[in-house]
Design a protein around this nucleic acid. Sequence first.
DNA 1: ACCCTCACCTGCACGC
DNA 2: TGCGTGCAGGTGAGGG
Length: 276
Amino acid sequence: MPELPEVEIVVRCLDRLIKGRTVQTAELRRKLLAPNFSKRSFAAKLKSSLVNFVHRRGKHILFDLDTGRTLIAHLRMSGRFMILSADEADPKFTHAVFYLDGDERLVFQDQRHFGFMNIVDTGKLFETKELACLAPEPFSDEFSVDYFRDLLRASKRNIKQLLLDQTKVCGVGNIYASEAMFIARVNPLRIAGDISGKKKIALHSAIREVMNETLLLGKNIRLDRQNIGGGIYGSNVESEWRIYGREGEPCPFCSKPIARIVQGTRSTFLCSKCQR
DNA sequence: ACCCTCACCTGCACGC
DNA sequence: TGCGTGCAGGTGAGGG
């Protein structure tokens, strides 16, 4: 269920755990996980691949392989990676298995079956369908105040749905959208172009702020091979949200009960007094 | 170009 | 206990 910071933390853990290791064989257990491949071709493409490093673009996890290929993986809502040893059984909903050197294997598990994988030539990585249209990374120089201001100015969409559009702002998901708009005191229903200049700047900085909070937590994360990077979402962070999931609780600034609305089938949480 | 709704799946928490 | 409902941190497709 991760957004960009959680994916970033998963990626750092994966990199530490499998950089320099070899995928001897790979098994695609659920065909639809990698719709571009048959089970046979998936295995063939990944056989005997050394993992140079693991990185990411947006919420996509990228395994850079020494064969000139990159394995792209997206966790969507419920995907997880774990490393298991020979005496540990596959969990329910195991959709792909990568047998490493030694007796260990990297397992991709996904209860809701929304995740997906693809294998592409590394030279054309950023031209692939998954990555070609993504907006600049939120911590890059390219994602500048000017970029953000121009983006909002040109848009007639409501700001919440604009923030979730990965081709416009990359890495923000449903939680961070609510959190950032709350910090910047922006009403989620407001047309992006109508937001004041001051609030545009505040929102730009709030997006980085909320993501950075989680990234900092990730610095001290314990490596958990059974749930790679997973310690960061779930229990401990949940209590930290300012507004997300807190319908009916008092706003921390003005005590008005926090509201929940639905935008495009997804929940948004807000304080209608503080966010005008 | 945009908005809306549905779709993909399973599991969990809730109220009756 | 069981069953129905609504919800879940993502995204794509199809129709208007």
